[in-house]
Design a protein around this nucleic acid. Structure first.
Lengths: 241, 241
DNA sequence: CCGCCGACATACCGTTGGTACGTACTTAGA
DNA sequence: TCTAAGTACGTACCAACGGTATGTCGGCGG
């Protein structure tokens, strides 16, 4: 009964002409409840964390029952993954928008960093993607998801920066650089978000990254060596001390 | 009964003269079972993950009951934290050993990185510290723990590297650099450990970091600018495109 | 020798994720 | 319009798990 009311209350979402995309009315209802589930789940997961967010709370928040949940998702983890995906793609789009039109690799990097530092301060992204993502999904699935969203952005930025140099490096090496940067950004983002003064922390992070970028830039301009060679530094194998 | 046998089998750990440190025999028994709990817990947590590792399995593996567990620890999370702490300190010690005697900051950094890349390939460290640590402990407690172990090592390395430059930067800034590097290393470590060819991946990571280090080194030698200034780059506010 | 207390064991509870099954409402087809 | 089919749920239930309350046994100080 309550369910009926619930459906009625969101019925404005139902397309007037269920012709092609929205298809039938049933499908629209269905999609609506699925959305509601994901919405509430995102909220609960963000607030309470994955383990402490009970399915009962989620389904009651979405004004459905577990039957509905298990009709749309194979389980709690699948629901989390759906939420994860949406949060990730949201973030990715916003970062891409910040990159829009920027062409100079260095500015692109700085702008992307800034956008990321904004995104990473949102509770949902912090908790769901950075904090609990790897643990809940497992590193494999986590990586797969990232690969086609935020990490893709980082990869693009890193690639364009590295291409500013004349060295040509194979794709795995670019991936390696991107991995390193992505990890750095995630960690930095967490520390920014949890700092007493996030603004100040963000400034510090931007400064630090700008510094490192300047180092790379210097090497580019001086046309310098070994981009992907190992640290078999000629100086000496450290027989000092 | 079984418990009795278990205790007897490890009774060689009991000090012959329970005078000062080991104290009474009871205390020694107690410490022994606590150790056993942590041992088994580390194993189970590493294999199955935090959520899927049941307390029943852990206590039965340690040949005790939940009564014993809840006598020594306040709950599952506390047990995890004990395991976490041990794994972390183990890793920290090993890294410190690798740093032993190295004085040149750049070599120290490279050596520390190499040691870290070894440590991070051990399943226990990967799973407990990197993957599940932040999610289970929460970022706050996670950071507190790291602060006094592995992160301390990174901090020291970063500090010594940065001090190679003539700039003086305040402590928070050094912390920021260390955070960035630590995050980079964690992520890189994960990708190394989960790569099809960890050896090759490790080489790539070392190469990439060496490259970045070379950039910093270049800036040091050229006595270059703005270590902690923001990227208010004079070049232009990016009205390009 | 004895009373006490620490170090467990045992039995039990509430909650949770997950499943099996029932059912009402839609929609396609005649 | 009527009906058969199937989708999209709701309901009732279960096993497993983390956690707790209480009992008990053996060592240890006096």
């Amino acid at each position: 009964m309550l369910t009926r009311v619930a459906k009625a209350s969101v019925s404005k979402l139902v397309p007037k002409v269920p012709s092609v995309a929205g298809a039938t009315r049933r499908a629209a209802y269905s999609a609506s409840t699925k959305r509601a589930l994901i919405d509430v789940a995102e909220e609960r997961f963000t607030e309470a964390g994955y383990a402490s967010a009970s399915l009962d709370a989620i389904v009651s928040g979405a004004r459905v029952t577990k039957g509905a949940l298990y009709h749309h998702f194979s389980g709690k983890q699948a629901l989390f993954e759906a939420v994860f995906e949406r949060v990730e793609q949201d973030a990715s789009k916003r970062i891409q928008k910040a990159l829009k039109g920027k062409k100079d690799p260095w500015n692109k990097a700085r702008e992307g960093l800034r956008a990321f530092l904004v995104v990473v301060q949102e509770p949902a992204y912090r908790r769901i993607v950075i904090q609990e993502g790897p643990a809940v999904l497992g590193y494999e699935r986590y990586r797969e998801q990232e690969e086609r969203s935020t990490f893709a952005n980082v990869l693009e930025i890193v690639r364009s920066v590295l291409e500013a140099g004349k060295w040509e490096l194979d794709d795995p090496m670019v991936q390696t650089y991107a991995r390193i940067f992505f990890g750095a950004m995630s960690s930095a983002g967490e520390s920014v978000a949890s700092a007493l003064d996030p603004e100040e922390a963000a400034v510090r992070v931007e400064g630090a990254v700008a510094f490192l970028l300047a180092g790379v830039q210097l090497m580019v301009e001086n046309g310098l060596p070994l981009p992907n060679a190992l640290a078999a530094v000629p100086g000496g194998d450290d027989r000092e001390n």
